[in-house]
Design a protein around this nucleic acid. Structure first.
Lengths: 208, 208
DNA sequence: AAAATTTTTAATCATTTGATTAAAAATTTT
DNA sequence: AAAATTTTTAATCAAATGATTAAAAATTTT
């Protein structure tokens, strides 16, 4: 009884279109994807896209909104957890995001392209200022600075470094793989290693 | 006598088109730029693009090739310098690339988008394998590992971390700026700080 | 200066592509 | 089962866009 309703919804043509749109938009970005690509990917008639979503732009907006809220939502939860220490937050971010991006490897570049194409719209959609400044993380960071446990006073450096270490390798994955003839398996292994190493590196960089 | 020839060439309509194409392609990527955008940016008749460069695709290819060779060429030179130590190489990379990207801030995302759209073509064009594996840098790194001066045996982690720390903040610049209401000036100041801090961070992360 | 060549322009073409429409098919309601 | 509603389809439209063409303008060669 519990799953049947949602199962039915997942096979809806509306759902099919969204899934296909996600696949194609992630891979090619807004401008390079044609509505016909999405229809074909979904195995549906082209007119259904407009029937269910009005326009390519509207469909894209929905995919983007869901993607962003999924990506940044988890971040907010982690940064705002009163029960975890700063160190634990770093561990959780590295672990969760590496796992997440491993499953959906196109998301980082998709988001970064969208940042380029529409920075203002993006900032409206992502209340980064609030998420960062009002977070438990910031309080803990400032405390750690005051207690001289951390040498770097600027939390932006801390966050840039952490996220850079996590996300950057995925963005340049083809270069990494090409540089040493790695298979996908080996690349994933590298990223799994990083789940453990990133928190250690962050400690080494910032701990007094 | 020395500069006059090249000065003349720079005001050629062919040059004007390339400069305009660079501007527009960097900002919007291949699919989202219309040849009319480039013509307008250059203040020239649309047909001239095809007269001088045959097609949008050919023009793009030229811009891409020049961009890549500029970006990776400097890297090769730095990594292959027999006279500099590993530490010095890190300092040089951080300094040069932060200055370079500060002047041309759209280049990283341009390259990353191109990696996504055409990874195979890219790897043909960028002989990363040779640049990395046959470099003086790799020799020095392996030596340092053997001498136990460095704890991490995998040079890929070293390079990913270094380049991530340098490049990632520029890619997410609008988010960074939005997160604390920074002006461009302040963002640049942050990046200037990083020129000094990144080599120190790298040392802390990897030095035994 | 005349002729030849190169460059530039305005107009137009052909294709691609997002979107619409009207009819057909499937489903739901009565 | 008939009627009404919703969903799907094939055909088509209209605008955008990369490219071409033929003539005009500018430049170079003779």
């Amino acid at each position: 009884m519990s799953a049947s309703a949602s199962e039915k919804k997942d096979s809806t043509t509306e759902e099919k279109i969204k899934i296909a749109a996600k696949t194609v938009f992630y891979k090619k970005g807004f401008s390079a994807t044609r509505t016909r690509d999405i229809a074909e990917e979904a195995g549906l008639n082209l007119a259904l896209l407009n029937y269910y979503f009005r326009s390519k732009a509207k469909l894209f907006e929905i995919i983007m909104a869901e993607t962003f809220s999924g990506f940044i939502g988890s971040m907010k939860v982690i940064l705002d957890d009163e029960k975890t220490s700063l160190e634990q937050k770093v561990i959780t971010i590295a672990e969760r995001y590496i796992d997440f991006i491993t499953v959906e490897p196109e998301i980082p570049t998709f988001i970064l392209t969208e940042i380029r194409n529409n920075p203002e719209e993006l900032l409206k959609r992502l209340p980064v200022k609030e998420i960062v400044n009002d977070s438990v993380f910031i309080k803990q960071f400032q405390e750690a600075v005051q207690n001289k446990e951390i040498t770097e006073p600027n939390p932006l450096h801390f966050l840039m470094n952490l996220l850079g270490l996590v996300v950057f390798p995925f963005i340049v994955k083809p270069i990494i793989m090409g540089s040493r003839n790695l298979e996908t398996e080996q690349f994933h292994a590298l990223m799994q290693e990083r789940k453990k190493k990133i928190p250690i590196w962050i400690n080494m960089m910032f701990k007094a």
